[in-house]
Amino acid sequence: MTFLHLAALAAILALFPVFLYRAAKGPTIFDRLIGLNGIASKSILLLVLIGAVTGHTGMFIDLSLGYGLLNLVGALAIGKYLESKGARAR
């Protein structure tokens, strides 16, 4: 575990509450969507970093690839819902 690992882990962990605040508080629905999306992409980064730190790179990279696919499909599905709903700004 190098200083780079530690600094990257700390930065990513510090970003989670920011996105969570935006997802919970965000005035419009798009803020919430972007907050959730940010949490999803940061969790991909966190998993890859944990893999690099612990040495189990194979398992964590597989997991993060799956999360990446899921993230895309989930965001598309929510966007589809918002499109059909007319996306009232609230």
Binding site: F19, L20, A23, A24, G26, I29, R32, L33, G35, L36, I39, G74, R90
Partner: peptide
Amino acid sequence: LVSAAFVLGA
């Protein structure tokens, strides 16, 4: 409830 669904996803 919309934001509750988002936060549950998080």
